[in-house]
Amino acid sequence: MLRTPYLTLAAVVVLGLVLLAVDMAVQPPASAPPAAAPPPAEAAATAPAAATPPTTAPAATTFPPRVRYVGDVVSDGSTIPVAVTVDGDHAKAYVCDGHHVEAWLQGPAGAGVLDATGRNGNHLTGHLEGDRLTGTVHLAGRADAPFTASPTTDARSGVYRQSGSGRTTGWIVRGDAGQVGLSHDGSGAVTPPPPLPVAGPLPAGVVPVDGTTDVLAAS
């Protein structure tokens, strides 16, 4: 009787440690060393990439040097905007519905094929079909979903990102079709960010995502 508070304290500590261990166990190993993960993925992805183009993309087999694709993922009967930037041999992708679904992905691109991975096992693969990009998105907790995206020549269309002091914000600008975005401040909640101006200078800290942007970096 006298000792039950010690038991309560011990039970709380043990429960906390068990939950912590479970969280550590389900952590995908790929995201643990963010800097070290891409090279092996690149090696793995470019090998099949060299073999697949003749069968999957007979028309266009190479990406333009710098290209932005904007399109939609069809997931569970609804569409979620997606934008992909291919810059040299780097692909960066952002899937965002402007409400609660978002995913940043990046990976190698080459020979008309790209393979981008994100956190939580998120994964996007795409290949050129004509000048359009088509492929599959796997988002954690959802069924694999197909997407199609078209290259855009509109100056403002594409993926934008702002990251710093704990807050990460992403936008997909879709030209005349408007824009979507999500912002989170590290508390687990997401809020819609202010829309980007359709022309003129970008707000401070907002950058168009290109091949050098690390979209999986912690802010």
């Binding site: 939950l19 479970v22 969280d23 550590m24 389900v26 952590q27 995908p28 995201s31 956190r119 939580n120 954690a140 912690a218």
Partner: peptide, 8 residues
Amino acid sequence: HEPGTVAV
């Protein structure tokens, strides 16, 4: 601790 990206 380096923040994790996924939790139960």
